[in-house]
Design a protein around this nucleic acid. Structure first.
Lengths: 205, 205
DNA sequence: ATCAGTCCGGACCGATCGGTCCATTGTTGG
DNA sequence: CCAACAATGGACCGATCGGTCCGGACTGAT
């Protein structure tokens, strides 16, 4: 007797929201436009997501999950070589800014658009960045970096800078130097097992 | 016979706009609120600035001028030592994120909030970042870096990453490693004879 | 075929957006 | 002291914001 909700609705909304929010910014896109683009009615959207803030948070969380999934795939071939994986994280980020449809890092953009620390979308974004930091630190520890925290944070700077510069000055600007910079920083903190003492010559302090 | 406009009005509006836009983001603040905070009427604001976009652009341009002024002061003591000046630029940025009332880099935030390349505020922001890149390159050239373009762009990554991380994870996060990372990259690109002086102790090595 | 019961498109709501305009105020030259 | 006129504060405008709600459409059990 009861009519059943159409399946896949939530994902369809999220896909549309990702496109619109990502391209023009979440604040610049109204809920009306999201509704029109999906072809659904407002009541459906507000059944799936309690508010716009909720939709923004869901969008960010979805991208968080996708990002880790893709990154795990990119890192898998170098399992057991954490130093190489550290560099691969940067290469992965650098490749992503070259892709068509890159309009800046969603996590950084969302933080810029929603300054209130209590905003659920911002919280998701910050949580993602914090997790990235932790993953880099774990890799740096596994790679026996002389100072794993320092190396992880320096690579965070490179990655964030890569995204920020790609979004403003384009992917052919400073963003193009990300992996080269990362290599220098990694070499500085990790001694190749077969080349002991190499970092000593550089490290004159 | 004719009544004369009150002087200093424009600067007063700009100061108020800078506070509100900087703290909560330009998109989150309405013109009505700017008007109320200044204590003036809307007609005055719209006589000085033709539109909100115009006000945003004027705000960014003002901050652009202030930034170069302050940076020139910070760099002046090291005139003739471009390698030291390169590091000083990063130190200057790192100090600025520690200041109370830091809510992220205005230039990156504005780019994130206004994605349309034609937006005057975004254009001002991009112009500022491009000029920063050029200044770094000029310093790198003067310091006889082995690859001045590469060094300048890598420092751009560090500075951008510093701002992005300070805005999201706080000034005690990865942002704290900016000068240390910059030192490594500078050392890597500048021959010992021209290297940064060692008078200051290093955070990590 | 019937009808109860759920779903959903879109009309609608008050609030707020950026921007305009006018009645009032205040100043200044004669 | 007054008349003339620019500067001003804030009422007001249409558009759009996020969010609610209802009447018709559709489903599935009988």
């Amino acid at each position: 007797m009861t009519r059943r909700p159409a399946p896949g609705t939530r994902q369809r909304i999220l896909k549309t929201a990702a496109r619109l929010f990502g391209e023009r910014g979440a604040r610049a896109v109204g809920m009306q436009e999201v509704v029109e683009e999906t072809g659904l009615g407002k009541s459906v959207l507000y059944r799936e997501f309690s508010s716009k803030d909720d939709l923004v948070a869901a969008w960010v969380r979805e991208l968080d999950a996708e990002t880790w999934s893709h990154m795990d795939q990119a890192l898998a071939p170098y399992e057991g070589d954490p130093a190489r994986q550290l560099l691969k994280v940067v290469e992965f980020a650098q490749a992503s800014v070259q892709a068509p449809g890159f309009y800046g890092c969603t996590f950084y953009n969302t933080s810029a658009e929603f300054r209130d620390p209590a905003h659920p979308g911002r919280q998701e974004a910050v949580a993602h960045l914090d997790q990235l930091r932790r993953r880099l630190r774990d890799l740096a520890l596994a790679a026996r970096a002389t100072d794993a925290d320092a190396l992880a944070d320096m690579l965070m700077l490179i990655i964030s800078g890569l995204y920020a510069n790609a979004a403003t000055l384009g992917s052919s600007g400073p963003a193009g130097r990300a992996t080269a910079a990362a290599r220098i920083l990694i070499d500085q903190h990790i001694a190749p097992a077969h080349q002991v003492g190499r970092e000593r010559e550089r490290d004159s302090c």
